[in-house]
Simulated assay, not measured.
Amino acid sequence: MPPPPATAAVRVRRAELSDLDDLVALELATFASDRLSRAQYRRHLDSDSALVLVASANHRHFLGTAVVFFRKGSKVARLYSLASKPDARGKGVGTSLVEAAEAAARRRRCHALRLEVRTDNLAAIRLYERLGYRRNRFLDGFYEDGGNGWRYEKALG
């Protein structure tokens, strides 16, 4: 299937069980470590404390995903994972997913959205900073493979 045109409208919706194969395939293709397993995705799809979002150019053209965690009693949501297919990068998929995650956090009365990003993931860092996220902590050896990270946070108004 050819990539969607740059002008294709990106739609974000809650992931469904029928998205499981696409979610797992993107996870394996995108991350070398710290991956969500098929079983974890399946659990998160039915969880009150997690929200799995899917971006598409039409209902079946899967472009990317975001996973957001909510902790009971906390007013800070966590963007745990953000991934888009290589042919969809630079087409607004990441922005659409982050904005949908922020909207979901606001609906749950969260005051902030927090995330971690590898220090060498410059494209993601540029995206988060462009969307108003502020770096607030260095995370030494944060990732499974020993990689360092940055913690970012954005106040949700």
Rank of each mutant, 00 (worst) to 15 (best):
A8P: 05
A8T: 02
A15M: 01
A15F: 04
A15T: 03
E16P: 05
L17F: 11
D19K: 07
A25S: 04
L26Q: 06
L26M: 00
T30G: 04
A32F: 00
S33N: 13
R35D: 11
R35Y: 06
S37K: 14
R38D: 08
A39N: 15
R43T: 13
D46V: 10
S47Q: 05
L51H: 02
V54Y: 02
N58H: 10
H59K: 15
R60V: 10
F62L: 10
G64C: 08
V67H: 14
F70V: 01
G73T: 02
K75D: 14
L79M: 06
L82C: 00
A83N: 01
A83G: 00
S84T: 15
D87F: 11
D87E: 12
D87N: 10
E99K: 15
A104F: 02
R108Q: 01
C110F: 07
H111A: 09
A112Y: 01
A112C: 00
R118I: 04
R118Y: 12
A123R: 14
A123M: 13
R126C: 07
E129Y: 08
Y133D: 05
Y133Q: 04
R134S: 11
N136T: 01
D140H: 13
Y143W: 06
D145F: 01
G149L: 08
R151I: 00
R151S: 08
Y152D: 13
A155G: 14
